[in-house]
Design a protein around this nucleic acid. Sequence first.
DNA 1: CTGAAAGCGCTTACAG
DNA 2: CTGAAAGCGCTTACAG
Lengths: 334, 334
Amino acid sequence: MKPAKAIIPKLDDVAQRAGVSTATVSRYYNNPAIVAPATAERIRAAIDEMGYVPNLLAGGLASNRSRLVAVLVPEIAQSIFNDTIEAMASELSLDGNTVMLGLTGAGNARMPQLIEAALARRADAIILTGIITDDGTRERLRERAMTVIETWGVPEDPIDIAVGFSHQAVGRDVARFLHGRGYVRPLLAVAEGARARQRRDGFLEEWRTTGHDAPTVIDVPLPTRFGHSRMVWRHVSQMSTPPDVIVCGSDVLAQGVIIEAQSAGFRVPDQVAVVGFGNLAIAGDMRPSITTVDVDGARIGREAVAVLRRRATGDRIAQKVIDVGFRLIARESA
Amino acid sequence: MKPAKAIIPKLDDVAQRAGVSTATVSRYYNNPAIVAPATAERIRAAIDEMGYVPNLLAGGLASNRSRLVAVLVPEIAQSIFNDTIEAMASELSLDGNTVMLGLTGAGNARMPQLIEAALARRADAIILTGIITDDGTRERLRERAMTVIETWGVPEDPIDIAVGFSHQAVGRDVARFLHGRGYVRPLLAVAEGARARQRRDGFLEEWRTTGHDAPTVIDVPLPTRFGHSRMVWRHVSQMSTPPDVIVCGSDVLAQGVIIEAQSAGFRVPDQVAVVGFGNLAIAGDMRPSITTVDVDGARIGREAVAVLRRRATGDRIAQKVIDVGFRLIARESA
DNA sequence: CTGAAAGCGCTTACAG
DNA sequence: CTGAAAGCGCTTACAG
């Protein structure tokens, strides 16, 4: 049996108890510098005694500031974005903001509803790792003058601000690196999604300059699961002239391919090399350790929140694109 | 240069355009069955033309129902709870609810602030995977008659409703299984945290009945990282009489231990067996595949949301604890 | 099936 | 440094 709903104290109750007006209690929360120390002390005491918790629904409505930030990501199960989400969540809660989490799903199918929900809650900002492909929605967000931060990718024409790095450049760097190490027959295992394709294109473009044959490219479904590596390996093992290096769209895939290769009796990297992407913890811990591309996901999250903070102080922010770069990390696997 | 903030249409604007009162437009959203079809059609048209999006801050304040559900988890980076979160997020958005994500951090350090935030936003419910250890907070939530769903664990005295399974029973089952397979010298790698300890206690209790020596127990820090497996393996390799089976607190740890063991030239399970926990995708895909305990995390999420739905219809819900059980899955590693 | 009106719990110019 | 009062954009008995 649940107890009857207790009466929840409101701002006015605190004000009466402290012997001040509601305006002053409101200022105690939102602009403490301007309330007299003695008054503040009485208010603090009243709040304590009553166990008062401000109603942010009412506060948001009155101030036209929800302190809600919508964070929209494709998924979290095996997501490379999780460090970014963690960093954002920690930073945002420091400022008294709340994260509204939206999972857009494969192909960002639920993106429209989630954008709608963010607007309905009057979110102060929307942070995305997925991509809004619908031009109507992009235009609508621009019209509303909504703060929108697109992360991980760097669109040619950001809706508002973008924090990320060039996926094309990643592809080019990996191609250059492998060519430099003397590999001649790469195979690309490319996940669905715009960014993975940008990396692929960067790779192919750069590889063309080496004079070697064009790499085999195979597509891997999203979301990336460890099990997809079996598919990749099966494909490889059926090729008449197998690749000397397998470029994987993620570290999870790379780890899986290595495990499959090893269990089929192949030595990595001697008989077949493997490259990952993302520099997850497993990349360094795997035996052999995995050559991969490091992206500082947490930094992306922090930079995104930093943009929000600057906006909050009235900063216009001329820079539409914040490039955090990436690092190719050469380890044992390639 | 951002465009000036566009004027956002409000309920009243829609009402005027449709030639009805605001009450009717409100009913169109919240109780469509009672508005006349022709009226509804006019309202729909007005909404479309104006691109109206209801303000849920105002709606929540007026109706005393925020449609916000706080989901509080320790972390998401490598979390075994991610399937639960995903399932909850999908189900909740189906009902027009929004997930407020809170990361409580190691040792649930940020739990108090996040509970406070949930109360401040007048969340309709709080769903936890972590544990509220502070009795004052537990009591306070009870007094507020807050809907609180504790998941994964099954506390002796739930604040409100609990959805999970018995971790003690898991420990006992694993002990019985290993004894049945003829193992005699288990080593337990136990993560910090109340539930891991419950599994340990269940194991030790059951193992005592076998007559074998008490197992070695080593503690592993949280959050579980793949790298911790190296620590476990180092410990094992220094033992004078090494274990014949290593019981790991998670599949990630188990996978790491197997990789370490293999790279040290040990055969798994012949020379040392390994057991995991959680049945992540990697458990089935690893070579050897990992013997583990399957927990249907997504189901826990769905059951939790189902409880919310029943509450919403006025159901009292006599059952304080919903046990979803678990399954021991015997694979190659033990 | 619909409308007029009070109220939800805050914030914020404005005035002092 | 503080207060009186209007207003934020909805919902919901109440009356018809």
